[in-house]
């Protein structure tokens, strides 16, 4: 990995970690709907760690999983979101979301090289839980389409962040760092699973 690439990844990571000011807006209209949808996955750590883990695992699995997983996830997530919007109940949503962090984190931590189809199914199943949560929690005042566009784009950007960090797997030290990140993701998921977060 070149120094310029490492610098780019570092800058992107810092930009994500910068604290944002509190907003009192209720998500009205197109702009409000978009920002509500965009911020919904980003302000929930249970969502963030799972999205990043998808990118990290894709980077570990290499081609073509590195881009197929981020293609599969938003598609199935939108299906889950549609179920949420239509009021179709899906059991154990919060458990499923927390479990996604645990399982995906462990898959990264142990660098599990699953077949592409298996990886796609695992990622797809968890995507339904995440999508359903976004669809159910759509604010009444928000422009629904703008909200949907916002959360699809935010999810995609989080995957890209994971893929960017996954580029570190090119070096042995980077592989250790990425696997460590996977373990941390599993711990965060576990904290949500057992009600500690």
């Amino acid at each position: 990995m070149t120094a310029a690439r490492a610098k780019g990844i570092l800058l992107a990571t810092l930009a994500v970690l910068v604290a944002t000011q509190v907003q009192a807006h209720t998500g009205e209209g197109v702009v409000g709907g978009f920002s509500s949808g965009f911020l919904h996955p980003i302000f929930g750590w249970d969502h963030v760690v799972a999205m990043v883990a998808v990118g990290l695992w894709g980077a570990f699995l290499g081609q073509p999983a590195i881009w197929i997983l981020p293609v599969v996830f938003p598609l199935v997530m939108a299906f889950g979101g549609a179920l949420g919007v239509l009021g179709v109940p899906v059991p154990a949503i919060e458990t499923g979301i927390a479990l996604s962090g645990v399982i995906l984190g462990l898959l990264v931590a142990f660098a599990v090289m699953a077949p592409l189809a298996v990886a796609a199914v695992i990622v797809g199943v968890f995507a339904i839980f995440h999508g359903h949560a976004h669809g159910t929690e759509l604010p009444d005042a928000a422009n629904p389409l703008a909200f949907g566009i916002g959360f699809v784009i935010a999810t995609g950007l989080l995957h890209m962040l994971g893929i960017g960090l996954g580029a570190l797997t090119g070096s042995s030290a980077g592989r250790i760092a990425v696997r460590g990140a996977g373990a941390a993701i599993a711990l965060v998921g576990g904290a949500f699973l057992f009600g500690l977060a």
Binding site: W67, V71, P74, A82, P144, L145, G148, V152, I153, G156
Partner: peptide, 25 residues
């Protein structure tokens, strides 16, 4: 090419949601 394919998948996701919103409202 991969970037455009990812964009297309985002389009599919947005269409699924748009359909649900139109069916609901």
């Amino acid at each position: 090419a991969i970037g455009f394919r990812v964009l297309a998948s985002w389009g599919a996701a947005i269409l699924i949601l748009q359909s649900a919103f139109e069916a609901r409202y």
